[in-house]
Amino acid sequence: MRPVKTAVFPVGGQGTRFLPATKAVPKELLPVVDKPLLQYAVDEALSAGIERLVFVTARGKSALEDYFDVAGELVASLKAKGKTAELAVLDTTQLEPGRIAYVRQQEPAGLGHAVWCARFITAGEPFAVLLPDELLWSPENPCLKQMNEAYERVGGNVIAVLEVPEAHTNRFGIVDPGSVDGLLTQVRGLVEKPPQGTAPSRLAAIGRYILQPECMTKLAAHKRGAGGEIQLTDAMAELIGHQPFHAMTFTGDRFDCGDKAGHITANIALALAREDVGPQVREWLAARNL
Results as ranks from 00 to 15, higher is better:
residue 28 E to L: 03
residue 114 A to K: 09
residue 69 D to P: 02
residue 48 A to D: 14
residue 104 R to N: 14
residue 275 E to H: 12
residue 210 I to V: 05
residue 8 V to Y: 03
residue 221 A to N: 13
residue 88 A to K: 08
residue 60 G to S: 09
residue 268 I to F: 00
residue 144 L to T: 09
residue 75 V to R: 08
residue 67 Y to C: 12
residue 153 R to L: 04
residue 175 V to Q: 06
residue 83 K to F: 14
residue 200 P to I: 08
residue 166 E to H: 15
residue 58 A to T: 09
residue 62 S to W: 10
residue 12 G to Y: 04
residue 61 K to Q: 07
residue 261 A to E: 12
residue 285 L to A: 14
residue 276 D to P: 14
residue 23 K to G: 15
residue 212 Q to D: 01
residue 128 A to D: 06
residue 177 P to Q: 11
residue 69 D to S: 15
residue 176 D to K: 11
residue 238 E to H: 04
residue 265 T to A: 06
residue 160 A to L: 06
residue 77 S to F: 15
residue 227 G to Y: 08
residue 67 Y to H: 15
residue 173 G to I: 13
residue 13 G to K: 03
residue 89 V to Y: 14
residue 8 V to R: 04
residue 19 L to M: 13
residue 245 F to V: 02
residue 199 A to F: 14
residue 48 A to Y: 11
residue 124 G to Y: 08
residue 160 A to N: 01
residue 79 K to P: 03
residue 105 Q to C: 10
residue 110 G to I: 04
residue 145 K to Y: 05
residue 200 P to S: 14
residue 27 K to Y: 03
residue 131 L to G: 01
residue 3 P to K: 09
residue 136 L to K: 08
residue 183 L to E: 02
residue 170 N to M: 12
residue 219 L to S: 03
residue 265 T to N: 00
residue 222 H to W: 04
residue 5 K to M: 08
residue 42 V to H: 00
residue 209 Y to H: 13
residue 100 I to D: 05
residue 287 A to W: 12
residue 180 V to L: 12
residue 203 L to W: 05
residue 19 L to V: 11
residue 203 L to G: 00
residue 26 P to L: 04
residue 219 L to W: 00
residue 206 I to E: 02
residue 205 A to K: 02
residue 37 L to K: 07
residue 5 K to L: 14
residue 50 I to S: 04
residue 178 G to E: 05
residue 71 A to P: 05
residue 95 L to F: 12
residue 282 R to S: 12
residue 262 G to V: 00
residue 258 G to D: 11
residue 265 T to G: 00
residue 62 S to H: 11
residue 182 G to E: 07
residue 120 F to C: 12
residue 120 F to T: 15
residue 156 G to I: 01
residue 37 L to V: 07
residue 21 A to S: 13
residue 258 G to F: 10
residue 107 E to R: 13
residue 49 G to Q: 13
residue 227 G to I: 05
residue 15 G to M: 02
residue 142 P to Y: 07
residue 170 N to D: 15
residue 175 V to E: 06
residue 25 V to Q: 03
residue 263 H to R: 00
residue 273 A to L: 04
residue 151 Y to D: 00
residue 103 V to H: 12
residue 39 Q to T: 11
residue 258 G to V: 05
residue 280 Q to C: 08
residue 223 K to V: 12
